[in-house]
């Protein structure tokens, strides 16, 4: 691992964002390396989802810059002009996203949900895309649901389709925004198992999560945020066992408290 030349996939520097005068992100800098699984942790409202949404410009930061494999997002190369919608779309197509509320397209079958963007945005051959879609469905264990509509799936199944849909874009990085928080506790495991298998395969991921045990097992880097700032960054083992800051200690003790019940 150590001697592999690590490429920066995402390079975030000095990102700030405020909503109606209140800072939700202040001066965030963070690098995501190829093959890493970065888990963003922190109390609700700490800005972790906003940070994730800045990474593909669904939220536009007020200051700072974000580079995807060396290419600046949202701002034209060598200028201060905004990117055109089309240029931005081309960059977004290289970033996979999985939503808390699944956000599957309800009018399309599972197979079409997965194939729509690869065919119409990436302009790939439809037959190849469908072949890949079936492979991905097999990977997430939903091969038999290819022709079903989202309305006929359980939450856990929807989210696994959401992951397959994002992977079909062959993204450089996969962003997961609280992928399990809209699920029944019974269904959380099946989704986390898929994410874990992706981590083992070396898919680069940024995951916003409240599942501490999952973060501990899967993350290669943990980023703890509070009130719009990064408070602590580290390896999961050291973060969970020896948190350095008081805020992190307090945050983690709440979870230990919950577990002992």
């Amino acid at each position: 691992m150590e001697n592999r030349s690590q490429k920066k996939v995402l390079q975030i520097s000095g990102v700030s964002k405020s909503f109606s005068g209140k800072f939700v992100l202040s001066d965030i800098s963070l690098d995501v390396m190829q093959g890493e699984t970065v888990c963003l942790l922190g109390p609700s409202g700490c800005g972790k989802s906003t940070l994730l949404r800045c990474m593909n410009w669904l939220e536009i930061p007020d200051a700072g810059s974000i580079f995807l494999t060396g290419q600046r997002i949202g701002v034209k190369e060598g200028s201060t002009h905004k990117m055109s919608d089309r240029e931005l779309a081309q960059l977004r197509a290289k970033i996979g996203m999985v939503f808390q509320s699944f956000a599957l397209w309800p009018h399309l079958s599972v197979l079409d949900n997965i194939s729509l963007a690869p065919i119409h945005v990436l302009k790939r051959n439809a037959r190849e895309v469908h072949e890949q879609a079936y492979e991905l469905l097999e990977k997430v264990g939903l091969l038999d649901k290819a022709d079903a509509f989202p309305s006929n799936l359980s939450g856990g199944q929807k989210q696994r389709v959401g992951i397959a849909r994002a992977l079909a874009m062959n993204p450089k990085v996969l962003l997961l925004d609280e992928p399990t928080s809209a699920l029944d506790p019974m269904l959380v495991g099946e989704v986390l198992a898929v994410v874990q298998s992706l981590a083992l395969e070396g898919v680069t991921m940024v995951v916003v999560t409240h599942e501490m045990e999952f973060a501990r097992q899967v993350a290669s880097k943990v980023v703890f945020m509070d009130e719009g700032r990064i408070i602590e960054t580290g390896e999961p083992k050291s973060f969970f066992e020896y948190p350095q800051t008081e805020k992190a200690q307090r945050f983690l003790s709440r979870f230990h408290g919950l577990q002992s019940h």
Partner: peptide
Amino acid sequence: PTSYIDSGRAFGFTGWK
């Protein structure tokens, strides 16, 4: 729901498409 709009944007759809 805004989430469809977000997911369309996030997957690189623009304009008439």
